[in-house]
């Protein structure tokens, strides 16, 4: 049997006390009638996700974050930042950071690559915590509903970058800016320092399963206990009408602005940190 919401809630309470439950109870989400939203999110699983990932956030990666005031408290918005680390723990930590540090609490909706939907168990757990498949229709519907999207414009090439390419932003896709312009939503850039060193990748082998892009061979069995430094930048508002979301020049220029903002946040974060683990 899948984990019943009440059981998820009980486990969350046992692992992290009442605080995570209190926050998840105050989450804004669109209940489709039975406690889940139309994409499968359920607040009790958000609490569970928080409780399970809490030790990673607090003790393993010891996340330090700043700039939460830039995340809008309501309305459609897009969080966009660098992606790295072989395993998508960066996404989990940003998700958690936003849930913990927004008031009233917001749950970002991470937009995942298609193959995530094929993963048994994980796909369901992720969906309960707010992850959606990376189709344009899903993103459009969520922004229409005033949700906060979490997008990594580098995609799989970002998480799979070589150690020698750390902090070098890969091909920066433009879809997030097109969506933002079309919905009149701001993009909040973020830079995450630390994840790029957590699990150096030494090789990759072709996947025997069609949907997986590849199987990474990391240098370490577990992610290293690097410290995450997460910084959100000022919201970028595009001076464009929704019709201009179809203008490739406008969209490319917008994406360049977001990319530059993320790059600046990374440079600042790297210059401030004293070491990979501190």
């Amino acid at each position: 049997m899948p984990l019943h919401p009440a059981l998820a809630r009980a486990v969350a309470a046992a692992l992290s006390g009442d605080e995570a439950l209190e926050r998840s109870d105050r989450l804004h989400f669109t209940d489709a009638g039975h406690g889940w939203d139309r994409f499968g999110l359920h607040p009790d699983y958000v609490a569970l996700g928080n409780a399970v990932a809490g030790p990673l956030y607090d003790h393993w990666f010891r996340v330090r974050s700043e700039g939460h005031e830039h995340i809008p408290t309501t309305g459609a918005a897009v969080l966009a930042g660098n992606h790295s680390g072989t395993l998508p723990l960066d996404g989990a930590m940003v998700w958690m950071d936003v849930v913990r540090h927004t008031e009233p609490p917001r749950v970002p909706r991470p937009v995942a690559d298609y193959f995530v939907s094929t993963l048994p168990f994980l796909s369901t757990l992720f969906a309960r915590c707010g992850v959606v498949g990376g189709s344009r229709g899903n993103a459009r519907a969520l922004l229409d509903a005033g949700e906060l999207l979490l997008i990594f414009p580098e995609g799989v090439p970002g998480i799979g970058k070589r150690f020698s390419e750390r902090y070098q932003l890969q091909n920066w896709r433009v879809g997030h800016v097109e969506l933002a312009i079309r919905h009149g939503a701001p993009v909040i850039p973020f830079g995450l320092v630390g994840a790029e060193e957590q699990m150096p990748q030494i090789a990759r082998i072709p996947s025997p399963v069609g949907a997986l892009p590849y199987i990474p061979i990391p240098a370490t069995l577990l992610p290293l206990p690097v410290r995450y430094h997460l910084a959100y930048g000022e919201p970028i508002h595009f001076d464009a009408t929704p019709d201009q979301a179809d203008d490739p020049v406008v969209v490319r220029e917008g994406a360049r602005r977001v990319r530059d903002a993320v790059a600046r946040l990374l440079v600042r974060g790297l210059s401030r940190r004293e070491g990979i683990f501190t």
Binding site: F39, G40, Y114, F115, S117, S135, G137, N138, R140, A141
Partner: peptide, 12 residues
């Protein structure tokens, strides 16, 4: 499909 939205509009 994997690459398609869960929430289905008429142009799906």
């Amino acid at each position: 499909g994997l690459d398609l939205p869960i929430l289905v509009t008429e142009d799906h």
